[in-house]
Amino acid sequence: MNRNSATNTKRGAPDMAKLGETAFDQNDKVSAEFFALSYGALVRQLIDQLPQDEDVNSVNQQLEMIGQRIGARLVEEYSVRSGGPPCKTFTDCAESVTKIGLKMFLNVNATVSAVKDSADTFSIRFHDNPLNIFVELPPEKNMRERLWYSNVLCGVLKGALGLVGYQTDVHFMKDTLRGDPVNEITLRFIGKERETFVVDREGR
């Protein structure tokens, strides 16, 4: 691990994983079990109020929206406390959000790699997911095939990056709850907003 880390680190560039560990260590922390139980209650509530029995995709969408709001709040703390370097390229952003952001807030050890033949798409992989430590997806309503239980994470990444000007498309590709060996999220950068003092969304 150290050797790989050294290999991947450019000369003089900060060790991202180390920054993530330091930022996490400096946090006030709560029980991961409490976090998982709270999230489980949220997902259960969304499922219980489904207007149509089979409309599981609306749960995925709502989880992403909730995550975007959370991400927009967390990025403020990230900016102040993480010690992360400025993001000048898509690669910088992907590495920072993965190795510092996910570690700092969720204690997730994730890897990030560029998708082959693409300059704007990255694959984020992690084994341990603090959101789903008490979860089994039931066969009813095709949950196992259609619910991305931890879709809030996609929203968190999208919301955080959106607040610093990067438009992204983030979605789950693999989920250990579905029997995959690893959790995988694809992060695709759509573009960067030009910095203006007044952002007029309707006029864009």
């Binding site: 006030d28 922390k29 709560v30 709270s38 949220l42 700092m104 969720l106 204690n107 603090p130």
Partner: peptide, 19 residues
Amino acid sequence: MSVSESAASFLNLELIILL
């Protein structure tokens, strides 16, 4: 095993909003 306090508090605020 733990997570940051801010992640948990924002999550619970969202749960409260939903409820």
